[in-house]
Nucleic acid binder design. Structure first.
Lengths: 207, 207
DNA sequence: TAGATTGTTAATCGATTAACAATC
DNA sequence: TAGATTGTTAATCGATTAACAATC
């Protein structure tokens, strides 16, 4: 990856790819940037710009060849081998998120779960072993995991910050209410669902 | 609400409030913008600007009085009565999200759930009745619900777009893979967890 | 007073959109 | 050719940050 491309742009590339796949299933072979834009809610200008960022090329007469585009996006987004993911907090939320969003993603592979509840540890959840949280610093580097999904409660965050900083994790998707004080080499995407809901409520009230 | 304030700023206000509440529990009575900034990961300049947007005031010597601040934020974010929320898709993900993020939120109240699976309908989930999706257009206006949370699969999106447009819903938190073609009066927050994960994986690979 | 913070404006930054020559 | 699209730069827009007088 030579150029700097924003995280938002990468998220959009992933969204484009999903639509391209559905177009393939419908038997389409070519697509114009404005079609992709209409289906995803962005502008055609932005679609073209984003695709450029992934080194994709189209032609002025036929637009983009879908198969080529998907290939370029696979190359850009997925790399050579699947990213290895661990889950912190093996409760209902964690399991639901894994089942809905990680399942069938060839480029992402769950390799372990961690919890501090002895009732949940030393069992298999979502196809992987669930370890006690105290084993994390040892196990994560051995598994070569680079991504973490956090659905643990607020109180666990300080401990998890320390574990994550020291175990080679490079990206965190955090559903806990608090962001994690991580050093800047680690990417954190904090999804604060409670606050998103409250913002929606506030906005809908003022309309 | 006289001034235009961005959705992002409102989300931050909700995040500040959560920290202010934890400070109260710790017996604190005053806070400076830079303390709030350090705990939430923003800049003190932004904190001051955001608080201004919620009509909050501090003093140059003692910073902000926490109780006053929470009161202002309650007023600004919550309004007079709780926003009524419905859930589309009463599966594991929907239930988990409700339990984790809606529970104990005084300003948000779940009033109904909808599903198209006859095994799930006409039961109580998360304390409310689960109706069949075909009843939604009739029931939602009666309940005066204004917010919807969507955890239904991709295929249900076109039907849900039509239901939501016609039933008085004003804000949507959408976890489905596709955004909903809604008219511009309705706020949609589309949280695309799969794409967020893929973006994290892509970024962590290029580091 | 001296030092630090608030409220608020101006400057900066980055991302989105518009524009258009080159191309098919 | 005429019409429409791509690739790419310039203009616009909005949000964040820096700056500083007023205040305590």
């Amino acid at each position: 990856m030579q150029q700097t491309i924003s995280k938002k742009a990468i998220v959009r590339l992933s969204i484009y790819r999903r639509y391209l796949r559905s177009l393939i299933r419908q038997g389409e072979s070519h697509v114009y940037s404005h079609e992709l834009a209409a289906r995803t809610g962005y502008t055609s200008s932005q679609v073209r710009r984003d695709l450029m960022g992934a080194n994709a090329e189209g032609s002025a007469s036929k637009g983009y060849k879908i198969k080529d585009l998907i290939h370029k996006l696979d190359e850009f987004l997925d790399g050579d081998e699947p990213a290895k993911v661990v889950l912190f907090g093996a409760g209902k939320l964690g399991k639901a998120i894994l089942q809905f969003f990680l399942n069938h993603q060839r480029s992402l592979q769950l390799v372990a779960a961690f919890d501090n509840d002895l009732e949940k540890t030393d069992r298999v959840i979502c196809g992987v072993h669930c370890y006690h949280i105290d084993q994390a610093k040892e196990i994560i580097p051995n598994l070569e995991a680079t991504l973490a999904i956090i659905t643990a409660p607020d109180a666990a965050i300080p401990q998890l910050s320390s574990i994550i900083s020291e175990s080679g994790i490079r990206g965190v998707l955090n559903f806990a209410p608090a962001p994690m004080a991580l050093d800047s080499r680690i990417d954190e995407q904090h999804i604060d669902i409670t606050s998103e809901l409250q913002a929606l409520a506030c906005l809908s009230r003022s309309r």
